[in-house]
């Protein structure tokens, strides 16, 4: 796949050893052109086992295409979610060989023979690859995710694009609430009381926003027991965000603000 895109979309690693899919005839090894088929092992909720499907490769295939092919040609009962297929809805998230990512954006590399697909971690499975995102959004809701406007605000605020607040907010804004960071975060996954990376990233954005009238309440909120101090500081969230956000950086930012106060950003 042509690399070089700036986003950190999950990359499936090609293993050079491993069982040869039975239907892949005459295409062994790395230099022999793409494999003709890909073996997909999908975790199923009915049995808790993996089902094995051998899928004919199409050019420029995504993991989402593997799922569509399974459903269309092999097992119409396979349940998975997607909506936009352009990295905007965040509903196609799952784990591929253990790494969480977006099915619609993850390429099936030319020499991939086998891939394991499983639902996101840390969220209840509704069926097969479909999870209930309610626990993720419960934490999101817990940080008061909406703007609390100043009572007098009747016109769009004048905010220069090069202002300090926008320098902090803009790179953190385009969260698609896919839950991938949540799934990758061992603290969230444990089911422990932790707001988690996406919700904290949202809190950081609102605290920096001079249009918000609730800054001090927010700073107090993320300092609670389930807040920033729960984070283990390993950064698993940031390394898998499909939108290149840095929730780990947001958490560090929040801790700094709590210790030293907010500098350089106008108070509301």
């Amino acid at each position: 796949m042509a690399g070089g895109g700036k986003s950190r979309h999950a990359r499936l690693r090609v293993r050079s050893v491993g069982p040869e899919p039975s239907a892949s005839v005459g295409h062994a090894g790395h230099n022999a052109g793409p494999t003709e088929t890909v073996t997909v092992l999908v975790r199923r909720s009915a049995t808790s086992n993996e089902d094995r499907f051998v899928i004919r490769r199409q050019p420029r295939m995504k993991v989402l295409d593997l799922l569509v092919a399974i459903q269309r040609d092999h097992d119409p009962s396979l349940a998975f979610r997607y909506s936009c297929r352009v990295a905007m809805c965040g509903t196609c998230a799952l784990r591929m060989d253990g790494t969480a990512g977006l099915a619609c954006q993850t390429a099936v590399p030319d020499h991939l023979r086998e891939v394991h697909l499983a639902p996101l971690a840390g969220l209840p499975v509704l069926r097969d690859l479909v999870v209930d995102v309610a626990p993720f959004f419960a934490r999101w809701a817990a940080v008061t995710p909406y703007l609390v406007p100043h009572p007098g605000a009747t016109a769009p605020a004048r905010v220069r694009p090069d202002s300090p607040e926008r320098q902090v907010i803009d790179p953190a804004l385009d969260c698609i609430t896919c839950g991938i960071c949540y799934s990758a975060c061992s603290v969230s996954e444990d089911g422990r009381d932790f707001l988690g990376p996406a919700a904290l990233n949202r809190a950081m954005v609102l605290i920096a926003d001079s249009r918000d009238a609730s800054r001090s309440e927010r700073l107090a909120r993320i300092g609670n027991l389930d807040g920033v101090d729960r984070c283990h500081y390993i950064g698993g969230c940031t390394s898998c965000c499909p939108k290149d956000l840095d929730p780990f950086g947001a958490i560090r930012q929040l801790r700094r603000w709590r210790l030293t106060g907010i500098q350089g950003i106008p108070t509301p």
Binding site: Y146, L147, P149, A153, T154, A155, P156, A157, R158, V159, R160, P161, D162, S163, R166, I169, L173, D209, R211
Partner: peptide, 13 residues
């Protein structure tokens, strides 16, 4: 002003 969207700004804000 109410919903909390922020659209891109021109250099003058």
């Amino acid at each position: 002003t109410r919903v909390g969207c922020f659209f891109d700004r021109a250099p003058d804000g």
